[in-house]
Amino acid sequence: MTLPVPIEFRLPEGWLPADPESGGAMGVAFAAVHPRPHAGFTANITIDGEYRPDATSLGHLADESVERLREVAESVVVTDRREVGSPDTPALIQRLAFSTGDGDARRDLVQSQVYLSMLDIADSRKRAVVRLALTASPAQHDTVLGDFQDFVRTVRPGTGTEI
């Protein structure tokens, strides 16, 4: 998958780019993994996005994301959601807790998502929404959250030569 608009970003120190498809992250334009797994799970950062020509709110898009996750996971709960940013650069953050797995092997996970509304630099009539997500075990989430926040602060529209 490619993003609808090019972006630039800098990975946190130690995080490693990963092949999204080999990690089972279909529909993702970029993925990175933490160098130290915890409790058998490797924390990861993913990036995906889409053009949204309509005026759908970021809250509605976040609701859609929760429903898609419910198709593949159990006990999906939105534990926090806030609109941030400004009218010119709106954003939304949400945190989800969920369980996933097969048979008796269940894994509890936490996912922090950031939705960024961006205008295409080449055509400001085109609006894209980029979603950044951090997924980790509950015990590791708060440890890697600072890295994710640092990563989010580096994301900006690109010139077309980046992801």
Rank of each mutant, 00 (worst) to 15 (best):
D104S: 05
G14C: 03
A39P: 07
S75F: 04
S112F: 01
P35K: 15
V110W: 10
E71L: 14
D108H: 06
A25N: 10
G103I: 13
D19H: 05
R106C: 00
G85M: 03
I93C: 02
S86G: 05
Q111M: 13
N44H: 14
L58T: 00
H60P: 00
V78P: 08
L92F: 05
V84W: 01
A73V: 02
I47L: 15
D19P: 10
A97L: 09
E74Y: 04
V77S: 08
D19Y: 08
G59Q: 02
G27A: 01
D19G: 08
S86L: 03
R95L: 07
E71A: 15
G27M: 11
A25D: 14
V110G: 03
A31K: 06
S22V: 08
Q94V: 00
P53R: 14
E83M: 06
A91E: 14
D80I: 00
D48A: 12
L58K: 03
I47S: 08
Q111G: 08
G40T: 04
L58P: 00
V72S: 12
P37N: 05
E21K: 09
V66F: 01
S57H: 10
E71M: 14
E71I: 06
R106D: 00
I45F: 15
P87A: 07
A91H: 04
E67D: 08
P53W: 15
P87H: 12
G101C: 04
L96Q: 12
F98G: 10
R106K: 12
I47A: 02
A43I: 02
A25P: 01
R52Y: 06
L69M: 13
R36Y: 15
F98Y: 15
V28Q: 13
L96W: 04
L96E: 06
V66G: 08
H60Q: 15
S22M: 04
Q94A: 12
L69G: 07
P35E: 13
L58E: 02
D108V: 05
S22W: 12
V28W: 02
G40C: 07
D48R: 04
G85R: 06
V77I: 13
P87I: 09
L16H: 07
S75D: 12
A97R: 11
I93R: 11
D54T: 10
E50Q: 12
F30S: 01
H38E: 14
R107M: 11
E21T: 11
S65M: 09
N44G: 05
V66L: 14
G103D: 05
D63L: 09
V76D: 15
